[in-house]
Each structure stands twice: as C-alpha cells, then as structure tokens.
Write a protein that binds this DNA or RNA. Structure first.
Lengths: 206, 206
DNA sequence: TCCCGTCTCATCCTTTTGGCTGATACGGCC
DNA sequence: GGCCGTATCAGCCAAAAGGATGAGACGGGA
C-alpha cells in the first residue's frame, strides 16, 4: 500500500486527486494540507511514501520552499510537484529543491498513477513537456545570469529607468548600462522592452 | 434537481468538482467537457441549468469565447466562471461575455453550492476578491483603452520599437507615439518599460 | 602566480523615446 | 449643424537608452 499526502490550496484539486487515486487499490491518500506550512507539518506527522505538492499556494511559503524544508528534515521523502504551469524557472527551482518529479495538472490519470508508484520506489518522473523544457534550460546555459544581473532584471521588470536602477542598487548609471548590455546579450534581445517581456513571460505565466 | 455541466481542461478539477457537488442532494453533474469547443457542444446538447466554466483551457477557444458563443446560441444559459486567477482583464471580459458569476477555485464549498443554486435561479454571484476587483475596474474607467490602443499595447508587450509598431500597424511613427502617450496616461505610467510591466502583470499572472 | 569572471566606472556617439503643440478626418450623438 | 471621441500625422526639443571601447579592483581557481 502506497500512502500519499496531498498539499494544494485548492479544495477541488485535492478532492479530485483523492477521487482519482482512490480508484487504485494500492494507493491511499492518508492526509491533505492546504498550505505550505501545513503541508510540511502534515508530512512530518504522517511520513507518507509520496507527497503530491502544488507550487503556487496563496499566502505563506510556496511549494518550493516547502520541499526545501522537507528536504532538510526528511532527506529521503519522495515529493512530486503537481502544478498547472511549467515555467522554466519553476521547474529548475523545484528540481533544485529536491523534487522527485514534476507532473502537470492536465496529466492523464495513468501518468499520475505511474508517477506515484515510481516515486514510492525512488524513481523520478517528468511530464513530457516539463522534461523538454528542463532539457532546454540545461542546454542553454547562456541564460545563466550572474546574481547581480538577476537582481537588475527583477528591478527592470518593475519599469525602473537606468537612473532609478542606479540609485536603488547604489551603482552609477554607467554600471547599470553595462549590466543591461550583458543581460540583453544573454537573453538574446536588444532593448529593455524585449528584456522585460521575455523575463515576465519566462517566469510564471506559461 | 439542478443539472450542471463542467467545462475544465484539468481532469482532477472536474473530478474534484464532481465529488464536491455530488455531496449535495439537489445538484447533479450531468456532463463534463475538457475544451471550449467541446464545452459549447456539450452544453447545447444537455441544456443544463448551470455551467461551471474554466477560463484558461490550453489549446482552442478559451472560456470567455465559449461563453460568448453560448450567449448567442442560448441567451438565457446560466454560466459561472470557475477559475484560478482573478486578473482585472479576465473578470471584465467574462462579465462582458455574459458570465452570471465568477468563482475562484479556492472558494469554500458552501460558496460554490450557493453560487450554483443562485445561478439556477438567475441570481449572479461574485467571489469577494473578484467583486472588489471588478468594483475597482469600474471605478477606474480611465483604464478603458480604445481598441486601437489595446492593439498597440499587445504588440508593445512583445518588445517592438516605435518603428516596428508603425510598420506592423501601417501607421506612421508619429501616430504610434500619440497612441503610446495616451496609453501611458491611461495606465498611469511614464515609460514603455512600466507600461509593459503593468500590462503583463495585469493580464494573467495574478 | 597568473588568468578569468564579476562588478565597477567612464567617455563618446547614435538612436530611440517621451513631452508638447497643433492639425486633419471620420463617425456618432444631441 | 456643432461637439466629442477616435485615429491619423508633423515638427521640435530634451531626456533616456543603446553600442563601442577601455579600464581598474577583487576573488577564486588552475
């Protein structure tokens, strides 16, 4: 019998998963949680074979952070990410945090079952679209912005001017422009407008 | 007995909703669909009292368009939007298309039941966060971009320059600048960077 | 030790953008 | 017919952004 804990802030998703998994004789949902904090506590309490974890979780810590906390408290815990979107950044962060697999919410039931059974045995699983994105992200290390550049890009997406960026980061406008030039090159764009567009679409919105 | 049709591309969401609604003696899910096209057909076939419709639907027509089509074919059909995000644009568009209510996926079960029963009687229902956003959107009619301006804004978020915008829209750069100035004023920003940031955050990503 | 990546800054020059003012044209609406 | 919103265009000027190049400081790794 494979015991499973569900962590998702949407009640309908939890009900759906529970209904789906209950059709399988060898899988049992032993507990649910609706927030990251709660999820960590629930998992520690029940010690399930597999955790199905959403990433976006309203208030409080998100799924990534929850996975990270679980990793330190219970390193061998199998966690499957189960989420709607497959943004590059999320995938990389989740894998980095120690997720054993990454399922999309529109996955076929059989894929979900297989992933749960696999995770219980220590095998990792990736939804096909996710795998291809991860592959692409690894193949494209150009996009590896330096910490400083990432910081700048974040502020850039808030619409700040070079002058404002300089003030906020305590550097001269010249330095801002240097960083921007590097960012543009790495993102493969040639204007701040495109950079913002690319950055905002890459993070989050599918 | 209130008959309901579910339209959502996520199987777990449909299962969850079905499980949830099945606990109510006076509500029955008579059919499900996993795409906009299919949803329209299914609704026309079954003629349910209430439709629960997701907005984002992967490929094909989205929930808004599905509602719009239903509106022309069956003007009195009660449709409740049931979605994850509450972006201003989506809410306005959904209400505009003829949605009878707007529920968020993290709504409490009782709220969902009440909304379904209300919709069956012709009453509209808004989740609290949605209502406040709608109110804000109405109170702020400045944001009402003209069709042309909206078109420009869309292209703007793709990172195009004024020259490129002009070419693509068959207008002079001068006209582009005029439109942009109006857009900036309406969005309350003063640079294309901020406009892009605002536009991309307003649409979609919560 | 020397090299390389990172972060910092500067100068010069070109292109792009933004702000302002004013103008024409078309289509509704009172 | 006059008014208003929308869409179109022009010219002018100042500010911002982008491209090219060079360079100093610091730290880690070969």
């Amino acid at each position: 019998m494979i015991s499973v804990v569900l962590v998702d802030d949407h009640l309908v998703v939890r009900s759906g998963l529970r209904a789906l998994l209950s059709t399988q004789p060898d899988i049992e949902v032993v507990a649910e949680a609706s927030s990251g904090e709660n999820g960590v506590a629930t998992v520690l309490e029940h010690g399930p074979d597999v955790v199905l974890m959403d990433l976006a979780m309203g208030a409080g810590i998100d799924g990534i952070e929850a996975i990270r906390q679980l990793r330190t408290r219970r390193p061998k815990q199998a966690v499957l990410v189960f989420t709607t979107y497959d943004s590059d950044a999320d995938i990389v962060r989740a894998v980095d945090a120690g997720a054993m697999g990454y399922l999309l919410k529109d996955a076929a039931p059989d894929e979900i079952f297989a992933a749960v059974r696999g995770a219980a045995k220590g095998q990792s699983h990736m939804s096909a679209p996710v795998a291809s994105r991860l592959f692409q992200a690894m193949r494209n290390p150009d996009e590896a912005l330096t910490p400083r550049e990432a910081e700048l890009l974040t502020l850039l997406t808030q619409g700040l001017s070079n002058k404002e960026l300089g003030k906020k980061l305590f550097i001269s406008e010249a330095t801002v422009k240097t960083h921007l030039a590097h960012i543009y090159a790495k993102l493969g764009v040639d204007s701040r407008a495109s950079a913002i567009a690319k950055a905002l679409r890459r993070e989050g919105m599918r």
